[in-house]
Amino acid sequence: MHIKDSTAPALQKSRFVKVIECPRDAMQGWKHPIPTAVKIDYINTLMRVGFDTLDFGSFVSPKVIPQMADTEAVLAGIHRPIHDTRLLTIVANRRGAEDACRHPEIGYLGFPFSLSETFQQQNTGASITEAYERVFDIHYLAKQSDKQLVVYLSMAFGNPYKDPYSKDVVYKWAHKLASVGITSISLSDTVGVATPEEIHALTHHLVTALPDMEIGVHLHSRPGGVTEKIAAALEGGSRRIDGALGGFGGCPLAQDELVGNIDTADIFEYLQKNGYESRIDAGLLSEARRMAREIFV
């Protein structure tokens, strides 16, 4: 599905797309413990593929996400990237950010900022207002440690709680984040409800309104809707897109086991077929995908 727009050519001058691989998103909710050594081998394989960034772990309480309790041990075993792949870790408060900032290998901190009050409380134990204050604080810590904060706008396309939602809410918070110096946000379809038209509308508006901010997408989807969502984001002007090999991961709140992360292999295939560029090596991507299938069984 291609969405016509008279301004699209201006937004699509760059054909290079940053592809972000998210093994953390796939692992954190996996029902079986994954040995640290297996995580290290998998992430080192991913480091060779040519991704722009790997979302590899999180500095959050192990009581909340037991699967990520070994993030520091995993980090110690990661080889230096051969393709300048940068590492991203999720943090939810100042303490987690301070822990992450002690590691020079980490280039990005990711903060989950929900547009749903209910989900923000469930996910980070904070209100939206408190989370915004955390963003400001963590942004300062990141700058002091030569890192960049990426803010994930979760529930950016609606929520299952009937919390107030509109595109204007997304626009308001994106502008507020830009006003305090945030230079990268990712629109997250946390429960897989976004239509291609909605994805295009949000990305197009924000890419146009905030030209100095990087507008990424972190999309979840049922298998049948993947291509249209990828197309909508790229045609809307986004040049940063998250995926997880095999389409593993997702959010339990989707209440549909078929709603998972966009499969990175589908993203790569779409880029190749439609004249976009990336640094991904097709052969190494296939090798990593085989490994993912062995881990997530």
Rank of each mutant, 00 (worst) to 15 (best):
T195P: 08
D5Q: 09
L88Q: 11
V226P: 12
A97L: 04
Q67C: 06
V60Q: 01
L234F: 04
V297M: 15
D189S: 05
R95S: 14
V193P: 04
S278A: 15
Q148M: 08
L115F: 01
E117C: 09
V17C: 09
G96N: 06
G225V: 02
I138M: 09
D281C: 13
I128W: 02
S166Y: 11
P211Y: 02
L87H: 06
P164K: 14
L46R: 10
K18F: 07
G224H: 06
H218T: 01
H218V: 01
F268L: 13
G243E: 07
R86H: 09
T45W: 02
V180P: 04
R95Q: 14
V135Q: 05
S145V: 06
I65N: 10
T85I: 05
F268D: 15
V60P: 05
T124Y: 07
V49M: 10
H218G: 04
E198F: 04
P164M: 13
R94A: 13
G224W: 06
E133R: 12
L219C: 10
V217S: 04
I20G: 03
D212L: 07
A73W: 00
Q255H: 11
V180H: 00
V64P: 00
E287R: 10
M213H: 03
S221K: 06
M213W: 01
G246I: 11
Q121Y: 13
V180K: 01
D5I: 00
I3L: 15
P33W: 10
R15S: 14
I82P: 05
Y152C: 14
H205G: 00
I20K: 07
R240T: 12
S221W: 06
R239Y: 08
L141D: 05
E294D: 15
Q148R: 12
E257G: 11
I78W: 12
F157V: 01
Y42A: 08
G236V: 04
V191F: 02
P252K: 03
G181F: 02
K147Y: 12
I82H: 03
V38I: 15
G216H: 02
K63I: 01
V169N: 09
T7K: 12
R95V: 02
T124P: 07
I262R: 00
P112M: 05
D256M: 06
P33H: 13
T71F: 03
D146G: 01
P223W: 05
Q144C: 13
V191M: 00
G125E: 04
W173R: 00
T195V: 00
E228W: 08
S14Q: 12
L210A: 05
E72G: 04
K13A: 12
I182C: 02
H79F: 10
V60L: 07
K172G: 02
A254Y: 02
G192W: 03
P196Y: 04
Q120K: 08
G110E: 04
A232H: 04
E98G: 01
A100F: 13
F136C: 11
D256A: 07
E21I: 12
L75H: 00
F59Q: 09
G283N: 14
R95Y: 11
A37E: 15
K162Y: 13
E257M: 14
N123A: 10
Y276L: 10
I20R: 06
H32P: 08
I128K: 12
A178N: 03
E228V: 01
S114Y: 08
D168F: 09
A194P: 00
I90Q: 12
A69H: 10
E21C: 11
I241S: 05
H205V: 09
Q121C: 12
P33F: 14
K143R: 14
